[in-house]
Simulated assay, not measured.
Amino acid sequence: MLPGSKLPSVTFRTRVRDDSLGGPNPFRWQDMTTEDYFAGKRCVLFALPGAFTPTCSTYQLPGFEKGFADFQAHGIDAIYCLSVNDSFVMNQWAKAQGLENVQVIPDGSGEFTRRVGMLVRKDNLGFGLRSWRYAAIVKDGRVEAWFEEPGLCDNHGEDPYGVSSPDTVLEWLAADAQGAAA
Rank of each mutant, 00 (worst) to 15 (best):
L48P: 06
Y59F: 15
N25Y: 09
N124A: 13
Q97K: 15
G126M: 15
F88S: 08
I76M: 06
V10T: 04
A181N: 10
G157F: 07
E100W: 04
M118S: 09
N101H: 15
R114H: 09
Q103H: 13
P62L: 09
D167K: 10
L99R: 09
T168C: 11
S9F: 04
Q72F: 02
S9A: 12
P8N: 06
F71A: 00
E148T: 12
Q97C: 14
K66C: 04
G110K: 00
Y161F: 15
S20E: 14
K66I: 01
T55Q: 08
W132S: 10
T33G: 05
Y37D: 02
P160S: 06
W29I: 15
F68R: 07
W146C: 11
G162H: 12
A180E: 15
P49N: 12
L173C: 09
D86V: 07
N91Y: 06
M1F: 15
F52K: 04
A174G: 14
T34S: 01
P150F: 11
T168W: 10
A47M: 13
H156I: 07
I76S: 03
D19E: 15
N155A: 10
G110C: 02
G141F: 08
A96L: 07
R115D: 12
D86T: 07
F46T: 10
E148H: 11
G162D: 04
G151I: 03
C153V: 11
D19Y: 00
V163K: 09
R28Y: 02
G157E: 13
V89K: 11
K66H: 12
P160M: 11
N124H: 08
G50S: 09
R28S: 11
C56P: 14
A136M: 15
V138Y: 02
L2V: 09
E171V: 13
V143Q: 05
S164D: 11
L2E: 13
A135H: 08
Q60C: 01
F12M: 02
Y37V: 02
N91C: 07
D36T: 02
M1A: 14
Q30M: 10
L2H: 14
S165P: 09
P62Y: 03
F88K: 08
G22R: 12
S83I: 11
D36G: 03
D167Y: 10
R130F: 07
T55C: 03
V138G: 00
P24M: 02
T11N: 11
R115K: 15
R13T: 10
C153Y: 05
A73S: 15
G40N: 11
A180V: 03
N85S: 11
E148W: 06
L152R: 08
G157D: 12
F12T: 02
S9K: 14
R121V: 07
R13S: 12
L173E: 01
F112A: 03
A181I: 00
L99C: 13
